[in-house]
Design a protein around this nucleic acid. Structure first.
Lengths: 217, 217
DNA sequence: TTGTGGATCACCCCATTTGGGTGAATAGAT
DNA sequence: ATCTATTCACCCAAATGGGGTGATCCACAA
């Protein structure tokens, strides 16, 4: 497989495009980008549909993408862009800080997530970060992402119970869990009974759901 | 429950402590913090054991914590600090960018994660971010965190198969999955057979493991 | 000292689940 | 016209899961 070299590579410029329905914001970003050395706003579009035919020929290094978009929304646009044009890094712009859309965007392949009120110096910095292999996140977005990792500090479950519940959540059978923990499968069963009591459930499925919901595992 | 008000609150200063075994770094951070308006380095310690008795009386807003620490390592220190002293935000300092230690630190309750080569302006900025409820992450750390969310773009599984595998990973029975997808349980079984074939496994557990490992779910 | 909670194990029951086999109909895309 | 995705059917036997009701041992606290 050959490496495709940008026809613009000698210019050393970072090529940026923006897909955003608000013209004022488009213009503001265009101004901001173009007045910065090393950055160039190649084109701006008001919807994914408008941008789609030019994705490849624009040859962008960075794609600024609004989430709230008419037609194809930003979330779906990420997947479509990734399919049509692999080389660009996508940075999401948003006004709403919706937890699920953040995670969907990141899992679809966005490289960064910025709120629109981010100061312009930060925007430029973020574009440069992404070009250097970094992952820009606004402080508030980063907080949400960090919190998504955080486990409950006061779990009702003991260490052993947590260990066993983790095994269950990994789809392991009681027998397998017992072997891995060097205990009898009857012991595992006892622990599971205690877990079910504490969580007030009576099935694997419910236990896993509650445990993930309360961040016990 | 009463709210405990800091005896220092009228000063409006952000109280910082650092736990870090390298004295040069300790001194550098102390200098950096104290020369910044609104920040004050209350104390610095070379190990968690040394810091532990003063955690409460220091009343820190922000705790800068090294991961590679003699005695109690930084990861374990997070949990102990959280137990002894709830009010402070913990920012991790590290030279090594180890994926698992990042996630362990965040799940133990760290509010931010910075590499030691972070420029001093960024450090100050991060402390302020954390005080405003943000979550500071170095660009490279943020990238790793973001990538941990990313799903495989070219999964061997179809949408339906992915859907069913997700159900399995949530501990649901075939019957339950069938009901939720409005299809027969025999159909679910067929899909599972295809999933097992594609992933080259022959059990729930292995399917889940491979799927998570390859980020198919 | 007497609990209480955590972790360990044993044996009862039996419905449900799981994994493997083989085969087939339909619709949609290449 | 072929391939894939999706749907369903029926065979089988072993394993698993959930609910009981017990017991022992140990550590740590009231």
């Amino acid at each position: 497989m050959m490496t495709f070299v940008s026809p613009y590579s000698k210019s050393m410029e970072t090529r940026v495009i923006i897909i955003e329905d608000d013209q004022t914001i488009r213009d503001a970003f265009t101004y901001l980008i173009n007045r910065t050395d090393g950055l160039k706003m190649v084109n701006s579009y008001s919807s994914y549909e408008n941008a789609e035919p030019y994705l490849v020929s624009d040859f962008p290094d960075v794609i600024l993408l609004d989430i709230e978009l008419p037609g194809t929304n930003g979330l779906d646009a990420i997947a479509k862009i990734k399919k049509k044009y692999h080389s660009g890094q996508i940075i999401i712009l948003t006004v709403y800080e919706n937890e699920t859309s953040i995670f969907k965007a990141l899992s679809s392949g966005a490289s960064g997530y910025l709120t629109k009120n981010t100061p312009s110096s930060k925007i430029i910095e973020s574009i440069k970060e992404v070009m250097q292999g970094g992952g820009p996140l606004s402080a508030n977005i980063a907080k949400m992402v960090i919190q998504s990792f955080r486990k409950s500090q006061n779990s009702p479950l003991t260490k052993r119970e947590t260990q066993i519940l983790e095994g269950i959540a990994e789809g392991k059978s009681r027998t397998k869990i017992a072997t891995e923990l060097f205990i009898d499968k009857e012991t595992v069963k006892s622990h599971i009974k205690n877990i079910y009591n504490k969580l007030d459930v009576n099935s694997k499925e419910d236990a896993i759901r509650i445990a993930k919901q309360d961040k016990l595992i």
